[in-house]
Amino acid sequence: MCELCQDLIDPKETKLAEVLAGYAGRKGALIPVLQKAQEIYGYLPADVLRRIGRGLKIPVARVYGVATFYAQFRLTPMGQNVLRVCLGTACHVRGGAKVLETIEQELGVKDGGTTEDQRFTLEIVACIGACGLAPTMMINDQVYGRLAPDKVAGILAQYE
């Protein structure tokens, strides 16, 4: 199949093409386009980065440079659930590191890693803005506050 036909068939590619067309010629488009592409694909595959470079007329080395600079961008697929453990100051002081260690043991992965069964991707973040509830973590969009190491297993078990 040629590239043109693929464009017509894969709905993700069509969406990306729409995004690129919407930003064509606009200044400062790269980061919002990468954000939208990540929404479409769940992560940023190399081919998508190349395509974005072509679409925005930006050298692909720069696209890659930007994609690897910002923590938000993922170049590998994520697990079904994204678990963000807060190690902001408030959480650190109230024992966030111990919660993290427990989670690392429980899941067998470290910061940025995805479990073998693709169930969780673990990320360390610095402050999710719920410091009053420290220590905290977020699974997908749900915030969990006032954590302790012994509460971890129960929460993780709720996710498929």
Binding site: P59, A61, R62, Y64, G65, T68, F69
Partner: peptide, 10 residues
């Protein structure tokens, strides 16, 4: 005028 190289990661 090529732009082959850039910084990556941080």
């Amino acid at each position: 005028g090529r732009g082959v190289l850039d910084f990556s990661h941080r």
